[in-house]
Simulated assay, not measured.
Amino acid sequence: MTAFSLEPAQLAWCAEVRALAAERLRPLAEKGEPGRVNRALLAELGTLGLLPRLFTSGALDLCLMRESLAHACTEAETALALQGLGAHPVHAHGTEAQRARWLPRVSDGSAVAAFALSEPDAGSDAAALTLAAEPDTDRPDTGAASASLAAHRDGPSAWRLTGEKCWISNAPEADFYTVFARTTPGAGARGVTAFLVPADRPGLTGTPLDMLSPHPIGALSFDAVPVTADDVLGEADRGFRVAMGTLNLFRPSVGAFAVGMAQAALDATLAHTTAREAFGGRLRDLQTVAHQTAEMALRTEAARLMVYAAATAYDEGAPDVPRRSAMAKLLATETAQYVVDRAVQLHGARALRRGHLLEHLYREVRAPRVYEGASEVQRGIIAKELYRTLDATTEEAGS
């Protein structure tokens, strides 16, 4: 895609979401406690009909929603995104019973979802996870579990999860977790299974982590947590596909979150440099300032276009979605870091004062360069996809 423009209806909807975020969501966000799930905010996201759109919209709509929310209220954006990340595997791969139990409650904000992939020693290298799903030989097979198992593969119909997860958003306050565990030792990405694990399962405990980012993040401990074939999402030993499919959808929208923050920082900078008097005139009249704001705008727009293009490719089922998703996430998150940092510099000390918009954005903008695949991981994905395409083309030409 070489050009992109939104339809008038899409632009109007973005403006409506920004207004709702400023008028109805931001006051609830301000009443929340940093590092804790804000259930009142989630409920309002449900009331406004934004949470249900997680399961009825395409990737581009998801990006527009996340960008618009982030521009006015990053807390609301993150609350919505975490619901989607944790529940999308249920929506895409869950059984009718799993979807019926959880998705309505995710949509109205009464149930909190979480995506539990990372571990203390398996963050960027997700295929190296070690949370063990060991066959539960003491648990007799039930008819329901055996019936579910037939849809997956021959093997155990019950397991015990033992190990740890770390850096899990919404932990330990989530009501259920999409958990990725190793069912076949030594098989790398091919031996991972996705499970839907309610938070009240015996043996599952968690602790909050005090992080720079203001949204809730915690660690989970699994002490022989029981799961059955009825809890499997997708197919046994094919959970890595569930994880990567979810990330391919959400990576461009992480970029949209970053673009929303970058635009908010740029808007604040334009207003400040217009109002601020310095060196006998307005700050904006200094060429060095004008050039910096131009660069901020240039990078923000370039990132926005790449995010929209990646999301559209996903919606159209294009073959290069992994590469486009990685590019969009990489460029947008690195761009947002640059733009927010420049905005802080142009505002001066006032931007570092607790409660200032840019102080808030400065804390928010750092984490997206790490989660859902660090920038270095995105570069690795891009290179792998480029060489895979080259090899396929060369092989086809030689045949």
Rank of each mutant, 00 (worst) to 15 (best):
A3F: 15
L6M: 10
A15Q: 12
A15E: 14
E16K: 09
A22Y: 01
L25D: 04
R26A: 14
K31G: 10
P52Q: 01
L60N: 01
L60C: 00
D61F: 04
L62T: 12
C63N: 05
L64P: 09
M65A: 13
M65N: 09
L69I: 06
A70R: 03
E77G: 04
L80W: 11
A81Q: 12
L82M: 13
L85T: 10
G86V: 07
G94Q: 10
T95E: 08
R99P: 00
R99N: 03
V112S: 03
A113W: 05
L117N: 10
E119I: 06
E119L: 09
P120M: 02
L131M: 05
A132N: 10
D138Y: 08
R139S: 15
P140L: 08
G143R: 14
L149M: 14
R153L: 10
G163P: 10
A174S: 05
D175M: 07
F176R: 01
T184L: 04
P185G: 00
G186C: 02
R190M: 06
A194R: 04
F195Q: 02
F195H: 14
L196R: 04
V197C: 11
A199T: 12
A199S: 14
P202V: 14
G203S: 13
G203I: 05
P208F: 12
M211A: 07
G218D: 09
F222A: 12
V225N: 10
G234P: 05
A236Q: 12
V242K: 02
A243S: 11
G245D: 15
T246F: 03
L247S: 08
R251F: 07
R251W: 13
V254K: 00
G255F: 00
A256D: 04
F257Q: 12
A258P: 03
T274D: 13
E277M: 02
G281D: 02
G281P: 01
R284D: 13
Q287K: 07
T288G: 09
A290G: 06
T293N: 00
L298C: 11
M306T: 15
D315P: 01
E316M: 04
G317Q: 02
P322A: 03
T335K: 04
T335Y: 07
Q337Y: 09
Y338S: 12
V340Q: 03
A343L: 06
L346D: 01
G355T: 04
H356I: 11
L358W: 08
E359Y: 12
R363T: 09
R366M: 15
R369V: 11
A374T: 06
S375Q: 08
V377W: 12
I382T: 05
